[in-house]
Simulated assay, not measured.
Amino acid sequence: MAWNEPGNQGKDPWGNRGGKDQGPPDLDEVFRKFSSKFGGGGSGNLNKMGLMLVLVGGLIVWGLSGLYKIEEAERGVVLQFGKYHDLVGPGLKWKPTFVHTIYPVNIQRINKINASGTMLTQDENVVTVQMEVQYRIVDPRKYLFSVTNPEQSLSEALDSALRYVIGHTTMDNILTVGREKVRRDTWDELQGIIEPYDMGMQLVDVAFKEARPPEEVKPAFDDAIAAQEDEERYVQEATAYSRQVEPQARGRAERMLREATAYKERVVLEARGEVARFTQLLPQYEAAPVVTRERLYLETMEQVYSSTSKVMVDNQEGGSMFYLPLDKIIQSQQPESAPNASSNRQPERVIRTEPSSDRSGGRTTTRQGRN
C-alpha cells in the first residue's frame, strides 16, 4: 500500500505524519539540521568546511606526488620553472610538484650508435662500411641542454668523420691491412668534431664492424684479397725458412774456416819441423854422406811400404820372371770377418833385387802389380 493511499494512517516516509505535505522534504532544511549538529552557523560554515577538506586533500595529494627515486647509476637534473636548478644523486627524493621537474640520466650505461653507408674511396672505388661508436654520459646537464638532440648530433658527426676518413684511404687498405688505421683516424676525427659542442659525452670505443665492396664486384675483390693473403703467407714462410737456413750456413762456413785455419797451422808447423830436422841432419850428411843417404832412403821406403803388401823376389841370376796373381793370393789369405778389407788396402808391390855395382851389393827395383 502506498504511503498516500487511504488506510495508511498518514505514515509519511519523509516524516509528515499528518499527511498534509505530500512532497519530499526541503534539502536546505536537511543541511541546516546537519550543520546545526556541528555548532550551527548555517550554509556559510558548511561551505568553508568543505573548502578546507578539499584543500587538505589536495595538499596531501600534491605532497605525495612529489616523491621520486633516482637509481644508483643515475643522476637527476632538477629544473625549477624550466631553468636548471640542481643535480641530485641516487636515492628517494622529494620535489615540489609543478615547481621542479626531474630528468634522470644514466651515467654508467655504455650507449651505442651505428653508422653505415656506401662511400667513395681515395682511388675512386665504392665500398660499403659499417662502424659502431660506444659512448658514456659524463655530464648530465651538458648532455640535456648543450644541443637539441645529442644522439642525432653524434650520429651525424660520426657519419661525417667516417666519410672523411674513407675518402682519404684506398680501397685495398680499407679491406685488408688498413682497417685499424681507419678505425683510429675515425675516432680522432669524431673527437675533434664533437669537442666544440661540449655535449657531456665521452667516447669509449670505435669499432670497425664491416667493410665490403659492392655485390656486383665482390667475387673479384674476394680473389684479390685471397691473393694478397697468399702472398703474405708465402713471405712469412720464406722468412721463416731463411731464419732456419741462415744459422746453419753460417755454422758450416765458420766450421770450414776453422778447419782451414787448423790445416794451415798444421802444415806450417810440419814444414817448420821438416826444416828443423833437415837443419839438424845436414852436419851428419856432411860427415858421412853415403850412410846418411842410405839411411834416409831406408826410412822413406819403410814409411811408404808400411801400409802395403809386399813380396820380395831375388833375381840376381837374371832371366825372365813370371808374376803370380799376388792380389788373389793375398785376398784368399785374409780372414772372412773382413770381406771389405781388400777395398781399403794399398796395391801390392813386387820388389826385385838385382846385382848392382854400388856399395849396397844389389839394385832394388820396385814394380807395382795390378790390384
Rank of each mutant, 00 (worst) to 15 (best):
L53K: 09
P90Q: 06
K37I: 12
G63E: 08
W94H: 12
F98Q: 10
G89P: 03
V88M: 03
L87H: 03
V88T: 01
F98I: 08
R75I: 03
V77N: 00
Y84M: 06
K83R: 13
G66K: 02
F98C: 05
P104A: 00
L53Y: 08
V78T: 00
Q80N: 10
V78I: 12
I70Y: 01
F38L: 14
K37P: 00
L59G: 11
R75D: 00
S65T: 11
P96Y: 10
K95F: 01
P104W: 00
V56E: 05
A73E: 15
L59A: 14
L46V: 12
V99T: 14
S43P: 15
G58R: 05
S43G: 10
V61L: 10
T97I: 14
N45T: 08
F98T: 07
Y103A: 04
W94Y: 07
K48S: 09
G66I: 01
A73I: 14
I102S: 04
S65N: 14
G41F: 03
T101I: 07
G50Q: 13
G82V: 07
V88S: 00
E71Q: 12
G39Q: 03
V78A: 05
L87V: 13
Q108S: 15
N47Q: 09
G40S: 05
A73G: 06
G66Y: 00
M52W: 06
G39M: 12
K83D: 10
K69L: 15
P90R: 11
V78D: 02
G57S: 10
Q80D: 05
Y103L: 07
L67C: 14
G66V: 01
G63W: 13
V88K: 06
V77T: 04
M49V: 11
E71I: 03
S65V: 04
V77C: 08
G76Y: 00
G82H: 07
V105D: 02
L67D: 13
V56F: 08
K95D: 01
G39T: 02
K83W: 07
V56G: 10
I60G: 04
Y68N: 02
W62F: 12
P96C: 11
L46M: 11
G89C: 04
V105R: 05
R75K: 15
G50S: 14
F38D: 08
L87Q: 12
V54W: 06
V54H: 06
G40V: 04
I107M: 03
F38T: 13
K48D: 11
G44H: 04
P90T: 04
M52Q: 09
L53S: 09
V105C: 08
G50I: 13
K48V: 07
Y68P: 02
G42D: 08
G89Y: 02
H85M: 06
E71K: 14
G82A: 07
P90S: 15
G44V: 07
L87F: 04
T97V: 12
K83V: 14
G89Q: 05
K37S: 12
L53M: 13
K93D: 09
L46I: 13
A73L: 09
L87A: 06
V54Y: 03
G42V: 06
L51T: 08
G63H: 13
V88C: 02
P96F: 14
